[in-house]
Nucleic acid binder design. Structure first.
Lengths: 215, 215
DNA sequence: CTTTTCATGTGCAAAAATTCACAATGTCTT
DNA sequence: AAGACATTGTGAATTTTTGCACATGAAAAG
């Protein structure tokens, strides 16, 4: 099906990006969109859109464009988000709670099936979503039982590696890490890091740099 | 000072990355680190570390390595995070609250100086940090008064562009956008997007892809 | 049925980023 | 003081990613 074995990493990132405006169009918008329009909504080059999609097949109609509904379905299929994905979260602080409640996760089929915290005060507590906070030592058992594929780390950096090890032991195949440090995993578990402050530092750098070039 | 005018964007991202293990080492660790060790902690190639740093000067000692304290100071200077940066947040829901309380922001000198929400129920409410939630129509006035440089958008996607426009009008120079959509800005305001679900979709893709290649 | 129009899909060129490989240069040992 | 050793800084080679430019094919118009 695919043209090449190795799909560029940036392409995968952009596919997720493309799906955002497509979801909007699905509700209220024309049923067809051109690579140029879609590129505009995402801030990329039109040829980039076409090339990204071409890795996976021919989804468009020449002279017309892409059918919004079809394209969105294809992208979701490619990204494997056409079925629910089961998650667990470790660390139910402010951040953890906001992730569990997050509308975007729910909307896109990401389901939190378990929540863990090392703080005995919190263990046993029932969350708004109905989940009960369990102690970290149950990660292995619960994840295997509930067939959890992805673990979300929302602990302070100090405990992140320990939590990561527990998740690996539980057979989790992906980790979304919100702790501002690099966690080490084995080859068959992939990590994605979300570090807000990296983005802020990026902004800070460019803000300052702007001053320099103007001064 | 710098070798080239145009510093690669990935380099800036990695500089922020490098600072994490350096901060740890500063507290408890050897006073000097090699590019190889630092690269290991960050999951990058040693030559990459050296090249990234070389854009900004010669910070190492040949045959020895980099002085942890000096290097960290240099990186902070480069990223312009050696001084406090003033932020405001728009949208004080679960996510917004967790960002305001976030220890990493505090630790790195990012200070929330104002909080806004469009919900009249919330306006006037006093937050744990002492800030009082203000209505969105005060963004312009308050941001100018408090010299806020960066605005954080933590609203649902629907309202994000409107909030973005208000922040632009308030003279904000950078925006950290947590809404899962692309906001449009003018040339002198830079946007960084934080979209958790993009990362999750990345994980989902690779998890599934792994299955394929193994099956 | 032919022509015109339009936007896709794609080979190729350009640009950007990464990695290699080694000379340069400092420290430590004897 | 000289030689061994370790690790930086960097030009060149490689790899990856992006963008151009146009042939291709589908639909609409005449």
């Amino acid at each position: 099906m695919t043209k090449v074995d190795k799909i560029p990493e940036p392409t995968i990132k952009r596919l997720a990006f493309y799906s955002r405006p497509l979801e909007d169009l699905l509700e209220s918008g024309p049923p067809v969109i051109s690579s140029e329009k879609l590129a505009d909504s995402c801030g990329v080059h039109p040829a980039q859109v076409r090339k990204d999609l071409a890795y996976f097949g021919e989804f468009g109609v020449r002279g017309v464009g892409y059918d919004v509904r079809d394209l969105l379905r294809e992208i979701k299929r490619i990204l494997a988000t056409d079925k629910p994905v089961y998650l667990c979260i470790v660390g139910v602080g402010n951040l953890g709670t906001s992730l569990i409640e997050n509308e975007n996760f729910k909307k896109r089929g990401y389901r939190f099936k378990a929540a863990f915290d090392s703080d005995p005060e919190k263990q046993g507590e029932k969350l708004a979503c109905g989940l009960i906070i369990e102690p970290n030592h149950r990660i292995r058992e619960v994840c295997r039982e509930k067939e959890i594929e992805i673990g979300v780390i929302a602990t302070p950096p100090r405990g992140a590696q320990r939590v990561c090890d527990l998740l690996l032991d539980a057979g989790v195949k992906g980790i979304l890490n919100f702790a501002p440090m690099q966690v080490r995993t084995t080859g068959d578990c992939r990590v994605e890091n979300v570090d807000f402050t990296v983005k802020l530092e990026n902004l800070a750098y460019h803000l300052h740099r702007l001053d320099e070039s103007e001064g």
